[in-house]
Simulated assay, not measured.
Amino acid sequence: MSHTFTHSADGRDYSGRTNIGEGFTPADGAPLVVALHGGTYTSAYFDIPGYSLLDRASTEGVPVIAIDRPNYAGSSPIEEGDSIILANAEVLRDAIGSIWEEYGAGAPGVVLIAHSIGAAVATAIAASSPAWPLLGLAISGCLVRVPAESREAWEALPPIPTIELPVPVKDQVMFGPAGTYSDDMPAASHPSNTIVPIAELLDITGGWIERRAEISGRVTVPVFHRQGEFDALWITSQDEIDEFRAGFTAAASVDTALQLGSGHCIDFHNASGELQSAELAFALDCAKTAVV
């Protein structure tokens, strides 16, 4: 069973949710997983009933902390600077270090699991050689380039700090075609919906794309990546997958592939169980390698 939490580090607050608590016993050698959500979602993205990474991890004995990134839910806001994604990475790297000190006892290290804009943030964290023991990086919903109309749509938004995407529009771009998700979706995902900083939408479709290869080239830990076959937010093909993989020139290993039968938010599709089981297996493998 999961519950909400608040963590404070360096004068900043972070809300989120975790499966760590009464009744949870970590498996021997299990890593601490820290999960980072994408844009327009809170940490509840990882805890939707029937699709919960936290619940699935509990059955495997893997402790998970899903953090609300800056500007989301109860987490402190952040100034965007030149790149709000890199600004996220800087403060979250330090916050995860503090979380590791509090929750990491007995674990061999941390594995990051992240989606979409959160995947870009997690990649930047991994590239920064954090002081705490990072064991692996598992990401989804982030690739090489976006359709031109996506960038144009975000640039056409009014000059306001945040926006809430209309639910029908959001569901259209986050989900694949009918038959790739169950009857309870997309409605079941709506409790995790929230406003998004417009700066994130502009950064992920602009500055991040320009920086991606250089930042990915500094990641040294094993990488796991899945991209929804019908992802409408990224130009998605095997060639794009191959180019994305090629960016991780220093990674210990790279496992990246199309997730068949899924749209952008794989966690909310019929492929959810397959993705999450593979992510947790990857995390456990990273932990085993670390203690050998």
Rank of each mutant, 00 (worst) to 15 (best):
R245W: 14
V254L: 12
N193F: 11
I235S: 07
G29N: 04
M174P: 08
T289C: 09
D183T: 11
G74I: 00
E60H: 11
Q259S: 03
T25L: 09
T123V: 04
E152A: 07
D55T: 04
E274P: 03
P222L: 09
S253M: 06
D183C: 10
A73C: 03
L260N: 11
Y103L: 08
P31K: 10
Y181V: 04
N270C: 10
G16I: 00
N88M: 08
T42N: 13
A107Q: 11
C265F: 15
R218G: 09
I195T: 12
R56C: 06
A126M: 09
A156C: 08
A66N: 01
L112N: 01
G176M: 08
S253C: 09
F24S: 02
S277F: 11
G263Y: 12
I20M: 07
I125C: 02
T194D: 09
G29C: 02
A124E: 04
A89I: 00
F175Y: 14
P49M: 03
P130V: 02
G118K: 08
K170N: 15
G106W: 09
S8M: 03
L284R: 10
E80N: 12
A105D: 11
T162D: 13
G228V: 03
V91D: 00
A119C: 02
D28E: 12
W154R: 13
H115D: 05
I235Y: 10
M185L: 13
V291S: 08
E102A: 14
K170P: 15
E101M: 14
P158V: 10
E229T: 00
E80T: 12
E200I: 14
L202E: 09
T4A: 10
A35S: 01
E149K: 14
N193C: 12
Y51F: 11
S129W: 15
A27D: 00
G74L: 02
R212V: 01
S76W: 05
T4P: 07
G97I: 01
S75F: 00
I20F: 08
I78W: 06
P168K: 13
S272F: 15
H269R: 11
G21W: 08
Q259C: 07
A124G: 03
K288G: 04
E164H: 13
F24G: 01
V167Y: 13
H190Q: 08
A213T: 05
A87S: 03
T123S: 06
H190F: 11
I48D: 06
G38H: 08
A119G: 03
L258E: 01
T220M: 11
Y45N: 06
A66I: 00
H264V: 02
F224K: 08
Y41S: 13
D28V: 05
L275S: 06
I65E: 02
S52K: 09
I198R: 14
T123K: 10
I139S: 06
Q227T: 01
G21N: 07
N71F: 15
Q259L: 05
G176R: 10
N71Q: 15
A35I: 00
R12F: 02
A126F: 12
R245K: 13
D239G: 05
I99H: 10
M174G: 14
T123I: 03
A257W: 14
E243G: 04
A283V: 00
F224A: 06
G207D: 07
L134D: 02
V91R: 07
D28M: 07
I20R: 14
L53N: 03
S128G: 03
D13L: 09
A252F: 13
Y14G: 00
